[in-house]
Design a protein around this nucleic acid. Sequence first.
DNA 1: GAAATTCCTGCACAAAAACGCAGAAAGCAG
DNA 2: CTGCTTTCTGCGTTTTTGTGCAGGAATTTC
Lengths: 249, 249
Amino acid sequence: MLKKERQAYILHQVNLHNKVLSSLLCSEINVSEDTIRRDLQELADEGKVIKVHGGALSHSFNQVYFPNNGVYSQNHKKTIAEKAVGLISNGMFVLTSGGTTIIELARSLPPQLKATFISGSIPAILEYMYHPNIEVILIGDKISKNSKITVGSEAIAKIKQLKADICFLGTNAIDVEHGITDNDWEVVQLKRAMIESSKKVVCLSIAEKINSAQPIRVCGLDEIDMLITELPANDPLLKPYIDAGVRVA
Amino acid sequence: MLKKERQAYILHQVNLHNKVLSSLLCSEINVSEDTIRRDLQELADEGKVIKVHGGALSHSFNQVYFPNNGVYSQNHKKTIAEKAVGLISNGMFVLTSGGTTIIELARSLPPQLKATFISGSIPAILEYMYHPNIEVILIGDKISKNSKITVGSEAIAKIKQLKADICFLGTNAIDVEHGITDNDWEVVQLKRAMIESSKKVVCLSIAEKINSAQPIRVCGLDEIDMLITELPANDPLLKPYIDAGVRVA
DNA sequence: GAAATTCCTGCACAAAAACGCAGAAAGCAG
DNA sequence: CTGCTTTCTGCGTTTTTGTGCAGGAATTTC
């Protein structure tokens, strides 16, 4: 088993169960504890997991249990959310993924908006639920504790039955060469299904994530219609994406 | 169980119930009292809890102390929840409705329990999600904003595909003549489906709701296996139900 | 004020981590 | 192919960490 392969597997396990035990992993993958430890160390250095005595925890673990009121780059996300809200009009069917940027979008929805929002993200659903006029459709399946989103074949099948007017994707990494990439296999499957089931695909991404890449590919730039960041549309960082045919806001 | 995980659980419990007793925690998590004490000490050093003789208090608890926690029947619900927890064992598939009693049940689940919980109730799902060892399956469909539960034919169809070991129903009204009754047509449909899909049906009800009725019928007493209230099993109020063949706890 | 908890300290033991090292595998130039 | 470097992996040893236990001190409770 290759090193990259092994680390991808570990990351997947962490994302799925919120924790891993080194002892368990080393018997599962059949390598020494040292190797596992080194892998965890590397993943921790990259900020993908949190290493603790005996194993590792997912990053969201701390957010779940130690409520973190200062959300990272909140202001940028608010800017992005406001730009995105402008794309939604009454009567639309809107499909959204999870992620903090999407939450910010949910919070920015004007109260008079009447639309239908569809998502499998629990935090997003919570926000939509408190909105006075929007209808909320929840995609059911097994919950991934890490991403707080429903994942699995049922969820994907349900999404594929839909045809939404617009789809908003929280983005983990985007880059001209690889397109949109992510690090959780199951989340990627969901995002792909969402893209297929939407007339229009909009990516929300803070500038920091632009020109970064993750191991698993979601889609190419040709499959997205619009990229929204907190930067002005003429920022040089965005030029390559405009050249690649993506609308930018 | 990892140290961080354990501390997270303790913190969650503190935030949930505003206090914890070390003696209770150590029997719940199955570690020595010393370990718990050391954990509490660490959490206190980080300012996350306030350590007191015999346990710890949440930070907000000290600022505003409401002896009854706002809800009058909270303690009753806790009693009910603790009785109900005893019916769940490792590996079970558990189907639950919504309601505050179910939330209390969710909060009382022992951390080492490994089971699969299935529900369409958003508040219940939120609680299940924080539990370290249980798997959570979310029933998807349109969200009913006032009951915060997914309702509709999709949800019902999904439930009918299941066969759960046990089903816990929060009860709105129960009475010997009409059985279990409710006032929301869509919620009733769901509860009926849940009853059909479970080997064992358990009703959770505070004594106050016993011998009351609502307009829509969920099921007769013959369809439920057990009724859990905060009363002792030999309370005269429960006698008619025992006579009707319902087990009582 | 006496009994019962709970707390603190030091200690022992086990599990896990860190470290250095050596062999294996892969990549590369000639 | 050969010889060289680089990377990866596993092994033994030493350190560190986490946990439980035993005692005596401190506290709550009645």
